[in-house]
Structure formats: structure tokens, C-alpha cells
Simulated assay, not measured.
Amino acid sequence: MKKTLISIAVLGAMSSAAFAQSNVTIYGIVDAGIVAERGGKSGSVNKVTSGVANASRLGFKGTEDLGGGLQALFVLEGGIKADTGESDVSGSIANRQSFVGLRSKEAGTLTLGRQYTPFYNALSQVGDPFAAGLAGTAKNLFPVAGANTRNSNAAVYVTPTYNGVSAEFFYGFGEKSANSTQRQVGASLNYSNGPLNARLAYNNRNNDDQPVLGGPVAEKDTGRNTLLAVNYDFQVAKAFFMYSDNKGLNSAALANVNNPYGTTVAPVASTKSADALIGVTVPVGGAGKFIASYINKNDKTNLNQDANQWALGYTYDLSKRTTTYVAYAKIKNKNGAGYTVGNNSEAGTGDKAFNIGVRHSF
């Protein structure tokens, strides 16, 4: 009996030591809200949905000290639907992020796997006062649908920060025999110092198609996006500005491709456009925050399918981990444009939407 207890104690100590050394963390977000959408061909849509402010997720991340200032790191993160308990992508367990890499204080960080693009990081972390969530998300009009948000088979390098300046480089392998086919390249130059945060990001997406590996390649135009994102904290309020220039095929893919307003001629994704945002967040009483933004999309093609969106929101922190929220946004489409008011996880069905819900992180 004593030997058994001693063995269990030794194994437990070894397990604890290994766990501490690898520094593995289980984390996640559970976000659910009531969403009311209006103005689309589906009529009035009322539902309980997941991921309104931030996509619900379950993740594992960890680091291991390799000595000499070098660390190994990994992230495995899958999306879930808090309203049903299902995976948000059928058959996938780590569809949001899945990467492994090395980090050095002197040399920077290199990671390999499924990862966010520098373009999306600039939008969600710096330029959008709604942080890419709620009804006011900039994703409703700014071009981050599909591969512009994240991509598989990617190598990402982030430099160390020098006097507030850093850079990020992204290369997504198309994994076709024609090396440039489906390739995606991105980069950002970042500056953060005191109240000022700014990023200049670029994204280049190759749209060539090779249906059969080793077969002929159908050459298509590339999609090119340049984004400037800035925010400045005045303490009494934080101001936001963002501008995106988009050119080429899939440079501004539609978030909702199902002709949401039932027009005779379905909306067409622009191949030449510009987006501009101004916004603000204002702290209220310590735990609360008021959010507002205005976005204008300028379609520079002959269709001239412009749109604009205004949005209001309010969040209240019940604790460090639990936040309640409410938001409303409205889009005005012009000349047959088909943009919809969605949220962090959904594209939306109409030109206006209201959200109320709660988010808990762990």
C-alpha cells in the first residue's frame, strides 16, 4: 500500500512538473445573444445565435522554454456554436487557428499552420472600434470575407518590437504544382507608442485555378488590398480611423452571396473599391463603454454599387471575464448593392440588425 502511494505521488509530481514546463493553457469564449434582423428577402429574422461579439471557441495553447531565450509555442483553436453545442465547421476540430512555431526575443517569432492575415489583424485589433464584432462590425463593408481573414498552410514571421515599431509577414502556400496558384502574401508595418496605435497592411491573393494537380492553370486577376488603421486614446475617448483600397478579383468578396434582397439582378462583388471608417469608443462609469462608427464604401466600377453603415453599441463589464452588450446597425445600399448587417460570426440577412447578449471568457 505504501509503495502504491509513493508511486502515485512520484507520478503526480512528474506530471505536474511536465505540465508546468510546457505551460499549457486551456482557454475559450462562450458568447451568445439575441439577434433581430430586418430588411432582407427573408423578412423579420429573430434568433438566439452564437458569436455575436466574439466567436465562441475552445482552445489550447502552450509554450516550452528551450533555453538561450528561445521558446517553442503552439495554438489549437476550434470554433463552437454556443446556441447548439455544435462545431461551427463540420468535421473540423481546430478550424480557427492551428499552428506551431518558435519565438526568440532577439530574432522574432516564426509560426506554421492555419493563421490570421496581417490585413485582418490590423482591422480587428486597431481600426475597428467594434473589434470586428456586434452589429457594427467593420466586416459588413470592409473586405475580409474568406481567405482575407485567415488562411491554411501559412508561414508567419513577426519581428521583435523596436521603439514601438514591428512588422509582420504572411505567406500562404497554395500547394499546387504551379507554385503561385492560390498563393496569398501579406505584410504589415506596426507602430504602438503610448496612446497611438497604427498599422499599414497589405494583402495579395492569387486567384489562379488548377482543378487537377499538375494540370493546366486557369490564370485570373489577383486581389490586392491596402489598409491603413489608426486609433488614438484621448483618455476621455478613443478615436478610430481606417481606410482600405481594394483592387482585382476577390479583393472585396461579398459576405452574403445569396442575393439577400431578392433583386432581379444579383449584387456583384466589386473589383475596384475603397472603404473609409471613422469611429469612437467612450468609457462610461468605469465598467461601461459606448461605441459608434460610420463606414462608407465607394464602388469605383461602372456598377457604382456604393453603401454606407452607421452603428451604435454599448458594452458593460460585469467582471474581468463577463461582458454584456447591446448594438444596432443600419446599412444603406445604392444601385443594387447587397451588403448586409451581420456580426462577428454571421453575414446577416438584411440591412439592419439589433443585438443583445453576454460574452464570457475563460
Rank of each mutant, 00 (worst) to 15 (best):
A287S: 15
K41N: 12
K2G: 04
A201C: 08
Y162S: 12
K47V: 02
K47L: 09
L303W: 01
D88L: 08
F19D: 09
F119P: 00
Y261D: 08
N258T: 15
A252D: 12
G146T: 05
F240L: 10
Q305M: 10
V10C: 08
G186L: 03
F290Y: 12
Q71A: 12
A307K: 07
A337R: 03
K300Q: 14
N163L: 12
V158S: 15
R57E: 02
V341S: 08
G43P: 02
T4K: 13
A252E: 03
V265N: 13
G214I: 08
I29Q: 09
L102Y: 05
K3D: 15
G350C: 11
L277S: 01
V280L: 15
L277H: 01
Y232A: 12
V265I: 15
N207M: 07
S177K: 15
T159H: 06
G174N: 05
S22D: 00
F362S: 09
V230Q: 04
G164F: 07
K41E: 10
G33Y: 02
T4A: 15
M1G: 14
G33K: 02
G215Y: 07
K41D: 08
A145E: 13
S180V: 07
A155R: 03
T322Q: 04
G85M: 06
R205T: 11
A147V: 13
N54M: 12
P260R: 11
G28D: 07
G286R: 10
T281Q: 13
N302H: 05
G113F: 03
E37K: 05
